[in-house]
């Protein structure tokens, strides 16, 4: 085909490459773009659109456009979803911050310990990491047995003093946070450990020559150099916390009342009714925005701080 075209050297100027060459980059990203489009962009756009629709009573009838009404309903305490959404949103934030506030320092502490020459280091390392290798639903089953009222492990130890861990409104969220911390700390510890091993040893030797003790080295050297790792762990653990759903399935089903309910599980509870789908999409958008805002702000905070301290 190409040979039949009149080819002159004027048409192939350096600025204007032939269309086949200009098309090539697009062809090369096409497979990736197709996948991203089908599985990320299109669902995201449909979620935004669907969050403004209200499904009709019968499935064959078209939905009605209601603007932002679905979002407003979620904050209306007389609406069947709105009455519960506020409390569940608060639970989710508490759950996320609780997990991060307990889990991150623990993970860092464990990483610092494991990083030293301990006896039986392999055993410790395995012990810390193994909970994060379990599927969450398995972890939930183990802890359901530990917490079980009357017949559980804690009940056998504490006997009459054992509270109804998963049945008391005041205790249940804390009990679930403990399980989440237990199951994820090992993974974050691994990340911190990798960060620690990336810090050049001669920095510590220089600091030691300058007379810095262990705590000074930790505060002035280790922590600032772990900044990037910390950002990553923070983002990942926060995002995971917002995605928690298996633990609730295995432990509390969100109860009692809604005291241990979290956003994603709330979505799962209400998705069975087709007529909630507009609201469900609105909740999904809110969830995505929260995670996005958090990720961006922690990224800005740590990255900007990082550049300033490097100057």
């Amino acid at each position: 085909m190409q040979a039949a075209l009149p080819v002159t050297n004027r048409s192939v100027s350096p600025a204007r490459k032939p269309w086949s060459q200009r098309l090539l980059p697009y062809l090369m990203i096409a497979p990736t773009f197709l996948i991203v489009f089908l599985f990320t962009l299109k669902p995201a756009v449909s979620a935004v659109i669907d969050s403004t629709l209200k499904p009709a009573r019968l499935a064959q009838d078209p939905p009605a456009f209601v603007g932002l009404q679905n979002y407003a309903d979620l904050f209306n305490p007389t609406h069947h979803l709105g009455a519960r959404f506020g409390g569940i949103l608060l639970n989710t934030v508490l759950f996320a911050f609780g997990t991060v506030a307990i889990g991150m320092p623990l993970a860092l502490g464990f990483a610092l310990l494991i990083n030293r020459r301990l006896p039986l280091r392999g055993v410790w390392r395995f012990g810390f990491v193994y909970p994060s290798l379990l599927p969450l639903i398995g972890a939930a089953s183990i802890w359901a047995f530990i917490y079980a009222d009357q017949v559980g492990l804690l009940a056998a130890i504490l006997r009459a003093a054992n509270p109804n861990w998963l049945g008391s409104p005041g205790l249940v969220l804390g009990a679930v946070i403990v399980v989440n911390v237990w199951s994820q700390t090992g993974y974050y510890m691994l990340l911190f450990l990798a960060g620690l091993q990336g810090i050049p040893r001669d920095l510590y030797e220089a600091a030691a020559l300058d007379g810095a003790n262990y705590w000074q080295q930790l505060l002035r050297l280790t922590l600032p150099l772990l900044r990037r790792t910390t950002l990553f762990v923070l983002t990942v653990s926060f995002t995971f916390a917002f995605q928690a759903v298996e633990l609730l399935q295995g432990l509390t089903e969100g109860g009692p009342g809604d005291r241990s309910n979290l956003i994603l599980y709330f979505i799962y509870q209400n998705i069975g009714e087709r007529r909630n789908w507009g609201h469900i999409n609105a909740i999904t958008i809110i969830l995505a925005v929260i995670v996005l805002v958090f990720t961006l702000s922690s990224f800005l905070f740590f990255e900007r701080g990082g550049r300033e301290s490097e100057r």
Partner: peptide, 30 residues
């Protein structure tokens, strides 16, 4: 709307039975 109504009733019963909500008439009315 069985699924939604059951969710409303289950949450209300569970909150009252667990002692999280003590004003029973107000909870039932809501």
């Amino acid at each position: 709307r069985s699924i939604d109504i059951q969710n409303v009733i289950n949450t209300t019963l569970s909150s009252v039975i667990a002692g999280d909500v003590t004003d029973i008439p107000a909870a039932l009315e809501a």
